[in-house]
Design a protein around this nucleic acid. Structure first.
Length: 596
RNA sequence: GGUUCGGUAGCUCAGCUGGAUAGAGCGUCAUCCUUCUAAGAUGAGGGUCAUUGGUUCGAAUCCAAUCCGGAUCACCA
């Protein structure tokens, strides 16, 4: 149990013992003591002053005395100021905590809890390459999966690829019209970028045709948009695709294979992976039988034109169509069908969808319909909704060419990390491959950390200049602290010093204690990050830990410590800090170098 | 218009199950590399926590209203 948990429990017991009143642990507020007061943790007394009918001062004195007397392993003293009971935790507690954990390589990680959860993320369209928004999604999804694993869950990572539909046909028809048989191979382009270019070409041509129609025939813009030949061609292609036309299918497969080759390269580079990939071309017909079922038990109803609907107005939402009048299913119906398939295949107790907050309404509806249909998977549906990534100039708009391409961005970050590393010149002895890996670790680490350090729920501004900053609250800063620690540990080990238990006689210095206090928080942070689905909790924590260690490092020497005891104490501190930084960064999908 | 999310330092963000004088980073200014990696440390400066009212011993945090901004309310996905 966490120390704060223990203090709460001890306080509850003390209150029962002293006053015969049983309070819930959650009714007791325990905070870290403000630095200007003496003590480590503070019990806020106001909360139960009333129910105990004591003045805060008397209550504090009585509680403090009892706690210190009955928990000698924890507390060595207390003071009461106004309504705050400040408790001092003894050095012996901190030291024995450190001695028990310093070599625990799974510190902070929970054992398997037997529960299985699914995380769906990434979910690209196969008509254009990944961009900055996808990066936030990919990093978040991967990180959440890893954080859940750290909390003992078995995790199934999935991806649904939107590989069919009108948008795919758009790039297909543009390729037919303009490519002259060009391929990624013949042009030396990455497949997803290659196909994306034809998607852009489609829109250029579409726009040109609309203007031409308006100019030559005097049609309104609205009508022209519907009559533009290239759009009619794309729509025809979609029908042909659904009819299984061999030529269209073959072109579709060919172009998608180019895109997948490109995506795989990107995923490889950014570290995304999946246990199971679903394709919309295989799932888009799902859910039809569920519509019948819903009609039978009255969850759905049919209108005169035979389209099928659900009325969610009593739940504060609208009416929602679940089957078109032509009998085809809509997006949400496919999603219901896929949810059922997923559940049948994996029986996950929870199914997490990492999808942007523009789809909040959709997922509310999805969950509600599944619940009304009585599907076993319904209650486990959770939409991990994240905010959009914006640029300092506003939203990314493909029409205005302000979309930040994922591959370009990663390449730029890697190149900047190379430039900075070369400027510093600390790793001149590295071999070529090691350098390449180091640049990638640092550049990608900076990017991932930058996108994961803010609360996923909130929209965020991506400032290119700030993102390439390697100082302060950044991934490279933490990597640097880790490398520094490893450097010391290597040096000590070379000198034959073994990090080991020591006999404790000396008091802790403030900086030594400050680090141990933070180290103790790690398991709680991992737990909270999972229950809030929030990797930024981990990012903030490891940054603060790294910062504290950095102060410690510049004030106190490890190798030349005042005594053997201090040397071992600080080595233990350093070792556990390095381990936590590494584990914490791993939970964000970021590697930490041994040297940089 | 309905629903919903947000507004904290010049900028980017923490803090929000109510608790002591609201914190980081960047940027600005000043100090520190003969000493374990200066991608570092130390210090200074910077705030009407959108506004108004309410709840109470106590409000950035809870409630209401207002202002501002985003998302969404398709037989699109």
């Amino acid at each position: 149990m966490s120390l704060i948990g223990e203090i709460k429990q001890a306080t509850t017991k003390a209150i029962v013992h002293l006053y015969g009143i049983e309070l819930l642990d959650s009714a007791i507020l325990v905070n870290a003591t403000k630095p200007e007061f003496e003590g480590d943790y503070t019990v806020v007394l106001y909360a139960f002053v009333k129910s105990l009918k004591k003045s805060p001062d008397v209550l504090g004195q009585e509680l403090g005395s009892f706690l210190v007397a009955n928990n000698p392993q924890l507390f060595v003293g207390f003071n009461v100021i106004k309504g705050f009971l400040n408790l001092s935790v003894g050095d012996s507690f901190w030291i024995s905590f450190l001695q028990s954990q310093y070599s625990n390589t799974s510190y902070g990680l929970s054992p398997k809890n037997g529960e299985k959860v699914m995380v769906e993320y990434s979910s690209p369209n196969t008509n254009k390459p990944l961009h900055l928004g996808h990066l936030r999604n990919n990093f978040l999804g991967w990180s959440i999966a890893e954080i859940l694993k750290a909390n003992g869950y078995e995790v199934v990572k999935t991806c649904i690829v939107n590989d069919r539909g009108i948008h795919i046909c758009k790039s297909m028809i543009a390729w037919q019209l303009f490519a002259n048989g060009a391929t990624p191979e013949s042009t030396g382009m990455k497949g997803d970028h290659f196909v994306g270019e034809y998607y852009v070409k489609f829109n250029d041509e579409y726009k040109r045709q609309i203007e031409e129609l308006i100019a030559t025939t005097g049609l309104t813009k609205e009508v022209a948009e519907k009559q533009a030949p290239i759009m009619l061609g794309a729509q025809k292609m979609l029908l042909d695709w659904e009819a299984g036309d061999a030529d269209v299918i073959s072109l579709w497969e060919r172009m998608n294979s180019w895109v997948y080759a490109g995506f795989n390269a990107t995923y490889q580079s950014i570290g995304s992976d999946f246990d199971r990939t679903y394709y919309e071309s295989k799932t888009y017909l799902l859910g039809k039988d569920l519509v019948e079922k819903g009609l039978d038990n009255g969850v759905f109803y049919q209108k005169e034109d035979s389209s099928v609907w659900i009325d969610l107005t009593t739940d504060g939402l609208d009416e929602k169509i679940v089957r078109r009048k032509d009998g085809t299913s809509v997006y949400i119906t496919q999603d219901i069908g896929l949810a059922v398939d997923k559940y049948e295949e994996y029986q996950c107790s929870k199914s997490i969808y990492v999808v942007g907050d523009e789809q909040n309404y959709h997922f509310k509806v999805l969950k509600l319909i599944c619940q009304k249909l009585g599907l076993p998977s319904a209650d486990g549906i959770f939409h991990l909704s994240y905010g959009m990534v914006e640029l300092p100039t506003g939203k990314m708009k493909s029409r205005e060419g302000t979309v930040v391409d994922a591959d370009d961005l990663v390449a730029e970050m890697v190149s900047i990390s190379q430039q900075k590393t070369e400027e510093l010149g600390k790793v001149k002895d590295f071999a070529g491959e090691d350098l390449t890996e180091l640049y990638h670790t640092i550049g990608l680490g900076a990017l991932k950390f930058f996108l994961l350090r803010v609360d996923p729920k909130k929209k965020m501004v991506f400032n290119p200049e700030e993102s390439i900053e390697f100082q302060g609250f950044t991934g490279p800063f933490i990597q640097f602290i880790h490398a520094r620690i490893k450097s010391i540990l290597r040096k000590m080990s070379a000198e034959g010093v073994v990090v080991s238990l020591f006999e404790s006689k000396e008091d802790l210095l403030p900086l030594e204690k400050a680090i141990i206090v933070e180290l103790e928080l790690f398991p709680t942070v991992i737990h909270d990050a999972a229950s809030d689905y929030d990797p930024s909790k981990v990012a903030i924590y490891i940054y603060n830990l790294a910062k504290t260690f950095s102060s410690f490092y510049s004030e106190l020497s490890i190798a030349n410590a005042e005594s053997e005891e201090k040397k071992l104490l600080r080595l233990q501190l350093a070792q556990l800090t390095a381990h936590i930084l590494k584990t914490g960064m791993h939970l964000l999908g970021v590697g930490v170098p041994e040297r940089m």
